[in-house]
Write a protein that binds this DNA or RNA. Structure first.
Lengths: 95, 95
DNA sequence: ACATTTAATCGTAAAATTACGATTAATACT
DNA sequence: AGTATTAATCGTAATTTTACGATTAAATGT
Protein backbone atom coordinates (compact mmCIF):
# COMPACT_ATOMS: atom_id res chain seq x y z
CA UNK A 1 0.00 0.00 0.00
CA UNK A 2 2.70 2.39 1.03
CA UNK A 3 5.03 0.97 -1.61
CA UNK A 4 2.42 1.37 -4.34
CA UNK A 5 1.88 4.94 -3.20
CA UNK A 6 5.62 5.63 -3.27
CA UNK A 7 5.94 4.26 -6.78
CA UNK A 8 2.94 6.26 -7.90
CA UNK A 9 4.45 9.33 -6.29
CA UNK A 10 7.64 8.86 -8.25
CA UNK A 11 5.75 9.10 -11.53
CA UNK A 12 3.26 11.70 -10.31
CA UNK A 13 4.99 14.58 -12.06
CA UNK A 14 5.12 15.32 -15.78
CA UNK A 15 8.83 16.11 -15.65
CA UNK A 16 9.65 12.76 -14.08
CA UNK A 17 7.55 10.90 -16.64
CA UNK A 18 9.30 12.85 -19.37
CA UNK A 19 12.67 11.88 -17.94
CA UNK A 20 11.72 8.20 -17.79
CA UNK A 21 10.48 8.28 -21.40
CA UNK A 22 13.61 10.04 -22.52
CA UNK A 23 15.72 7.37 -20.86
CA UNK A 24 13.58 4.72 -22.53
CA UNK A 25 14.15 6.26 -25.94
CA UNK A 26 17.81 7.10 -25.68
CA UNK A 27 18.77 4.28 -23.36
CA UNK A 28 21.13 6.56 -21.42
CA UNK A 29 21.25 10.26 -20.68
CA UNK A 30 23.41 12.73 -18.87
CA UNK A 31 21.75 15.31 -16.71
CA UNK A 32 22.66 17.94 -19.28
CA UNK A 33 20.81 16.12 -22.07
CA UNK A 34 17.64 16.28 -20.05
CA UNK A 35 18.16 19.89 -19.06
CA UNK A 36 18.47 20.72 -22.75
CA UNK A 37 15.09 19.22 -23.53
CA UNK A 38 12.97 20.07 -20.50
CA UNK A 39 12.08 23.66 -19.64
CA UNK A 40 13.65 23.33 -16.22
CA UNK A 41 16.82 24.48 -14.52
CA UNK A 42 19.71 22.07 -14.12
CA UNK A 43 19.27 21.95 -10.37
CA UNK A 44 15.61 21.10 -10.74
CA UNK A 45 16.34 18.28 -13.17
CA UNK A 46 18.98 17.00 -10.80
CA UNK A 47 16.39 17.00 -8.03
CA UNK A 48 13.93 14.98 -10.12
CA UNK A 49 16.69 12.54 -11.02
CA UNK A 50 17.42 12.09 -7.35
CA UNK A 51 13.76 11.34 -6.67
CA UNK A 52 13.62 8.75 -9.44
CA UNK A 53 16.83 7.20 -8.22
CA UNK A 54 15.72 6.89 -4.63
CA UNK A 55 12.47 5.33 -5.85
CA UNK A 56 14.65 2.73 -7.56
CA UNK A 57 13.45 3.54 -11.06
CA UNK A 58 16.78 4.71 -12.48
CA UNK A 59 20.47 4.29 -11.85
CA UNK A 60 23.23 6.85 -12.13
CA UNK A 61 26.83 5.95 -12.80
CA UNK A 62 29.47 8.63 -12.54
CA UNK A 63 31.53 8.82 -15.72
CA UNK A 64 34.23 11.34 -15.36
CA UNK A 65 32.70 14.73 -14.96
CA UNK A 66 29.20 13.58 -15.84
CA UNK A 67 26.70 11.05 -14.56
CA UNK A 68 25.20 8.50 -16.89
CA UNK A 69 21.57 7.79 -16.08
CA UNK A 70 19.71 4.62 -17.08
CA UNK A 71 16.39 3.01 -16.41
CA UNK A 72 16.75 0.45 -13.64
CA UNK A 73 15.27 -2.75 -15.00
CA UNK A 74 14.36 -4.18 -11.62
CA UNK A 75 12.68 -0.99 -10.52
CA UNK A 76 10.74 -0.60 -13.75
CA UNK A 77 9.57 -4.20 -13.51
CA UNK A 78 8.42 -3.56 -9.98
CA UNK A 79 6.60 -0.44 -11.12
CA UNK A 80 4.88 -2.44 -13.83
CA UNK A 81 3.87 -5.33 -11.62
CA UNK A 82 2.85 -3.23 -8.65
CA UNK A 83 0.67 -0.89 -10.63
CA UNK A 84 -0.83 -3.61 -12.78
CA UNK A 85 -1.68 -5.65 -9.69
CA UNK A 86 -3.40 -2.65 -8.21
CA UNK A 87 -5.20 -1.87 -11.45
CA UNK A 88 -6.39 -5.44 -11.80
CA UNK A 89 -7.61 -5.58 -8.24
CA UNK A 90 -9.70 -2.50 -8.94
CA UNK A 91 -10.88 -3.35 -12.44
CA UNK A 92 -12.10 -6.82 -11.49
CA UNK A 93 -14.62 -5.52 -9.03
CA UNK A 94 -15.74 -2.35 -10.72
CA UNK A 95 -17.15 -4.00 -13.85
CA UNK B 1 2.05 12.96 -19.90
CA UNK B 2 0.14 15.37 -17.73
CA UNK B 3 -2.81 12.99 -17.60
CA UNK B 4 -0.60 10.06 -16.59
CA UNK B 5 0.89 12.24 -13.89
CA UNK B 6 -2.54 13.28 -12.65
CA UNK B 7 -3.72 9.69 -12.46
CA UNK B 8 -0.53 8.69 -10.67
CA UNK B 9 -1.00 11.59 -8.30
CA UNK B 10 -4.49 10.40 -7.46
CA UNK B 11 -3.12 7.07 -6.25
CA UNK B 12 0.05 8.52 -4.74
CA UNK B 13 -1.23 8.36 -1.18
CA UNK B 14 -1.78 5.28 0.98
CA UNK B 15 -5.13 6.55 2.21
CA UNK B 16 -6.45 6.97 -1.33
CA UNK B 17 -5.26 3.52 -2.31
CA UNK B 18 -6.94 2.14 0.79
CA UNK B 19 -10.17 3.88 -0.15
CA UNK B 20 -10.06 2.47 -3.68
CA UNK B 21 -9.42 -1.04 -2.40
CA UNK B 22 -12.22 -0.71 0.13
CA UNK B 23 -14.59 0.35 -2.64
CA UNK B 24 -13.40 -2.59 -4.71
CA UNK B 25 -14.15 -5.01 -1.87
CA UNK B 26 -17.44 -3.61 -0.65
CA UNK B 27 -18.62 -2.27 -3.99
CA UNK B 28 -20.05 0.83 -2.34
CA UNK B 29 -19.21 2.85 0.75
CA UNK B 30 -20.42 5.87 2.60
CA UNK B 31 -17.90 8.35 3.84
CA UNK B 32 -18.59 7.17 7.38
CA UNK B 33 -17.68 3.58 6.54
CA UNK B 34 -14.28 4.71 5.42
CA UNK B 35 -13.79 7.00 8.38
CA UNK B 36 -14.50 4.02 10.66
CA UNK B 37 -11.72 1.99 9.07
CA UNK B 38 -9.00 4.53 8.33
CA UNK B 39 -7.19 6.37 11.12
CA UNK B 40 -8.22 9.73 9.70
CA UNK B 41 -10.71 12.42 10.55
CA UNK B 42 -13.98 12.62 8.63
CA UNK B 43 -12.98 15.86 7.00
CA UNK B 44 -9.73 14.35 5.81
CA UNK B 45 -11.45 11.33 4.33
CA UNK B 46 -13.91 13.64 2.63
CA UNK B 47 -10.97 15.53 1.16
CA UNK B 48 -9.41 12.35 -0.22
CA UNK B 49 -12.76 11.32 -1.67
CA UNK B 50 -12.97 14.66 -3.40
CA UNK B 51 -9.52 14.14 -4.92
CA UNK B 52 -10.43 10.68 -6.20
CA UNK B 53 -13.68 12.00 -7.60
CA UNK B 54 -12.09 14.87 -9.46
CA UNK B 55 -9.53 12.46 -10.89
CA UNK B 56 -12.50 10.50 -12.24
CA UNK B 57 -11.73 7.33 -10.31
CA UNK B 58 -14.86 7.25 -8.19
CA UNK B 59 -18.42 8.55 -8.27
CA UNK B 60 -20.52 9.85 -5.41
CA UNK B 61 -24.30 9.79 -5.42
CA UNK B 62 -26.18 11.59 -2.67
CA UNK B 63 -28.62 9.25 -0.95
CA UNK B 64 -30.57 11.13 1.64
CA UNK B 65 -28.23 12.32 4.30
CA UNK B 66 -25.29 10.28 3.06
CA UNK B 67 -23.28 9.96 -0.12
CA UNK B 68 -22.79 6.59 -1.75
CA UNK B 69 -19.35 6.22 -3.27
CA UNK B 70 -18.45 3.75 -6.01
CA UNK B 71 -15.52 3.00 -8.24
CA UNK B 72 -16.01 4.69 -11.59
CA UNK B 73 -15.55 1.96 -14.18
CA UNK B 74 -14.46 4.30 -16.95
CA UNK B 75 -11.94 6.03 -14.73
CA UNK B 76 -10.49 2.79 -13.41
CA UNK B 77 -10.16 1.46 -16.94
CA UNK B 78 -8.35 4.62 -17.93
CA UNK B 79 -6.06 4.25 -14.93
CA UNK B 80 -5.29 0.70 -15.93
CA UNK B 81 -4.64 1.44 -19.58
CA UNK B 82 -2.73 4.65 -19.01
CA UNK B 83 -0.41 3.18 -16.43
CA UNK B 84 0.09 -0.09 -18.28
CA UNK B 85 0.89 1.79 -21.48
CA UNK B 86 3.46 3.80 -19.62
CA UNK B 87 4.89 0.71 -17.90
CA UNK B 88 5.14 -1.14 -21.19
CA UNK B 89 6.82 1.74 -22.91
CA UNK B 90 9.44 1.74 -20.19
CA UNK B 91 9.84 -2.02 -19.77
CA UNK B 92 10.34 -2.66 -23.47
CA UNK B 93 13.41 -0.53 -23.68
CA UNK B 94 14.98 -1.16 -20.31
CA UNK B 95 15.48 -4.92 -20.78
C1' DA C 1 48.90 25.38 -12.77
C1' DC C 2 44.58 27.34 -14.45
C1' DA C 3 40.34 27.59 -16.61
C1' DT C 4 36.30 24.97 -18.06
C1' DT C 5 32.67 21.70 -17.75
C1' DT C 6 29.34 18.93 -15.35
C1' DA C 7 26.25 17.73 -11.88
C1' DA C 8 25.27 17.72 -6.94
C1' DT C 9 24.10 20.38 -3.10
C1' DC C 10 22.68 24.51 -0.44
C1' DG C 11 19.68 28.13 0.65
C1' DT C 12 15.41 29.87 -0.12
C1' DA C 13 10.78 31.16 -1.81
C1' DA C 14 6.30 29.92 -3.44
C1' DA C 15 2.87 26.70 -3.91
C1' DA C 16 0.57 22.40 -2.92
C1' DT C 17 -0.60 18.67 0.14
C1' DT C 18 -2.14 16.69 4.25
C1' DA C 19 -4.48 16.82 8.43
C1' DC C 20 -7.53 18.56 11.93
C1' DG C 21 -11.49 20.76 14.42
C1' DA C 22 -15.42 23.70 13.83
C1' DT C 23 -19.15 24.97 11.21
C1' DT C 24 -22.73 24.45 7.84
C1' DA C 25 -26.40 22.42 5.03
C1' DA C 26 -29.35 18.85 4.15
C1' DT C 27 -32.00 15.05 5.34
C1' DA C 28 -34.16 11.87 8.58
C1' DC C 29 -36.07 10.78 13.05
C1' DT C 30 -39.12 11.75 17.34
C1' DA D 1 -41.00 21.97 15.48
C1' DG D 2 -36.83 20.27 17.33
C1' DT D 3 -33.09 17.06 17.50
C1' DA D 4 -29.79 13.96 15.49
C1' DT D 5 -27.04 12.28 11.68
C1' DT D 6 -24.12 12.71 7.76
C1' DA D 7 -20.85 14.66 4.82
C1' DA D 8 -19.14 18.90 2.70
C1' DT D 9 -16.78 23.04 3.41
C1' DC D 10 -14.04 26.55 5.90
C1' DG D 11 -10.14 28.12 8.32
C1' DT D 12 -5.75 27.00 9.61
C1' DA D 13 -1.28 24.82 10.73
C1' DA D 14 2.46 21.85 9.51
C1' DT D 15 4.83 19.58 6.14
C1' DT D 16 6.24 18.51 1.53
C1' DT D 17 7.03 19.59 -3.17
C1' DT D 18 8.67 22.25 -6.81
C1' DA D 19 11.61 25.53 -8.68
C1' DC D 20 15.41 28.65 -8.97
C1' DG D 21 20.11 30.77 -8.61
C1' DA D 22 24.49 30.37 -6.39
C1' DT D 23 28.00 27.60 -4.82
C1' DT D 24 30.79 23.54 -4.54
C1' DA D 25 33.40 19.44 -5.89
C1' DA D 26 35.37 16.69 -9.19
C1' DA D 27 37.22 15.70 -13.50
C1' DT D 28 38.86 17.33 -17.98
C1' DG D 29 41.18 20.28 -21.26
C1' DT D 30 44.72 23.97 -22.29
Amino acid sequence: MVRSADIAKAIAHPARIAILKMLAQRNTCFCGDITEVLPLAQSTVSQHLKALKSAGLITGKVEGVRTCYCLNTAGIMELKSTLSELSNELVETCC
